[in-house]
Computed example of a mutant assay.
Amino acid sequence: MLKVVGRSEHYHGAVLDNVVLPYALRQKGRFRALSQSNLDVGFFLTRGDVLHDGDFLHTECGQVLQVVAEKEAVVTASCSDWQTFAKACYHMGNRHVPMAIGERWLRFQPDHVLQNMVEVLGLTCRAHQAEFTPENGAYHSSHGGAGGHSHHHEHDDHGHSHSGHHH
């Protein structure tokens, strides 16, 4: 089993394989998955640190894998004006549901109550398959920023290089 012990946003070198993961797994610290070529991969990462599409995973033995966000069932709600969008974000935020936010669009996991609410507020909803990477919570984000866009990552800061030691 390959043991993933670190992650980074940038890496220049050979990538052994991709690991396609849904949001439910990308938010866990300890789990097992198969890579695209069926390698057994164990994850031993900091809890609460969500993996993003394109992140690099560093294994104990110096190999590097790359995260691919699995396409999954989502609802994307959009509108043409900022006030309607702001109201929808406010009401969704009050429900504390995981939500990805873009420019006048928001995305959430399928839920007919939430979909009905944003439609009543004036947004148009589309159910489809897409990557789901919700915003990090402002109070429990390991990235420190309170207003963060979902792709803020710290650089590889756990104090050692992965290039020199092979187990």
Rank of each mutant, 00 (worst) to 15 (best):
A100R: 08
G122K: 09
L114G: 02
F43A: 13
G42A: 15
H149F: 12
R104V: 06
S8N: 11
L123D: 03
D40Q: 14
N18E: 10
H10I: 11
T124F: 04
V19C: 12
F31E: 03
R32A: 09
V19P: 06
A77I: 01
C125A: 11
L51H: 00
V4A: 10
H155K: 14
K3T: 09
S78G: 12
L51E: 01
H128A: 13
A100V: 08
F56W: 07
H10S: 11
E70Q: 14
S161L: 15
L39D: 11
V118A: 04
A86C: 02
V15A: 08
V20S: 08
G42R: 15
N38G: 12
W105Y: 13
D111Q: 08
H149E: 11
A86T: 09
R32F: 10
L114W: 00
H10F: 13
V15R: 07
M99K: 05
G148N: 12
V50M: 02
A77N: 03
C89Q: 12
V5F: 07
S80H: 03
T76Q: 10
H91W: 09
T59C: 06
H158E: 11
V67A: 03
V75D: 03
Y139H: 13
V113P: 03
F43M: 15
K87C: 11
S163A: 14
L51R: 04
K71R: 14
C79D: 02
D55A: 08
N136A: 15
N116Y: 01
L2V: 02
L16N: 01
Q27M: 04
S141G: 09
A77W: 05
G102L: 09
A33Q: 10
E103W: 15
Q27F: 00
Q109T: 11
D81T: 04
F56Q: 03
S80D: 03
H128T: 14
D17W: 09
G93T: 01
H140R: 08
H153N: 11
P98E: 12
T124V: 13
A100M: 13
L65A: 05
L45S: 13
G137F: 13
P98A: 14
G122A: 04
M1Q: 00
